[in-house]
């Protein structure tokens, strides 16, 4: 019986167990208009990748704990010292110094607004979000960048005040653990597994 591929790190090396690929035979592709002559074959493949978050790991871990982390350049020699990044950015894009991790949860709860949005009726394969997906880009006071995320409740509007919610139960440890709802939304209205 197969099991999903699982990975952990020991001594800075990946340790894997389970099935990382599944074997499926090729199947011929034939031409229905020309005597079912051979045109090609299918090449089935089902793989699981191993992906390192590196210096961004604290951000994705913090989402499961109900925290929104950003970063700030504190390099006194940087011309742009004080730049705050959300999305979380490991290094300052100007001086390339290592940024300081900051907790933006409170700020996001108080001053996040929708910069722009869209409502997605179709998605690509492997999308795990329910349609329609309400993409929003969120801007914050005194933050130089604009985070892309999604709204879980209500209809988005430019300028709408929103607050972050976090998938604290059964987190996926991906960006999908962060979502937003209109300010004033009650806790019992949140999607399953999410909390403020």
């Amino acid at each position: 019986m197969s099991m999903f591929g699982q990975v952990y790190v020991k001594n800075n090396r990946y340790k894997i167990k389970g099935n990382f690929h599944h074997l499926t035979p090729n199947i011929p592709i034939r031409n229905a208009d020309d005597g079912w002559k051979l045109m090609g074959v299918t090449n089935p493949r089902d793989m699981t990748y191993i992906h390192a978050y590196g210096g961004e790991a604290p951000f994705f871990e913090a989402l499961s704990q109900g925290k929104l982390l950003g970063t700030r350049c504190d390099n006194p020699d940087c011309e742009f010292q004080g730049t705050v990044y959300q999305p979380f950015r490991i290094h300052c894009m100007d001086c390339l110094g290592r940024n300081t991790i900051i907790d933006m949860t409170d700020a996001a709860q108080k001053n996040a607004v929708i910069h722009t949005f869209m409502v997605c009726e179709r998605s690509g394969a492997f999308s795990l979000l329910d349609k329609p997906i309400k993409f929003i880009n969120v801007e914050f006071e005194k933050v130089d960048t604009i985070l892309m995320s999604y709204l879980s409740k209500g209809s988005p509007e430019i300028g709408m005040r929103v607050v972050p919610i976090f998938k604290k139960q059964s987190p996926t440890y991906t960006i999908m653990d962060l979502s937003w709802v209109p300010a004033g939304t009650e806790e019992d209205q949140l999607p399953e597994g999410f909390g403020f």
Partner: peptide, 20 residues
């Protein structure tokens, strides 16, 4: 990590620009 999981559709990344 930051965008692709949000729908896996490039049209969406342009649609926010279109809206704005």
């Amino acid at each position: 990590d930051w965008e692709s999981p949000l729908g896996h559709i490039y049209t969406g990344y342009y649609a926010v620009m279109a809206q704005r």
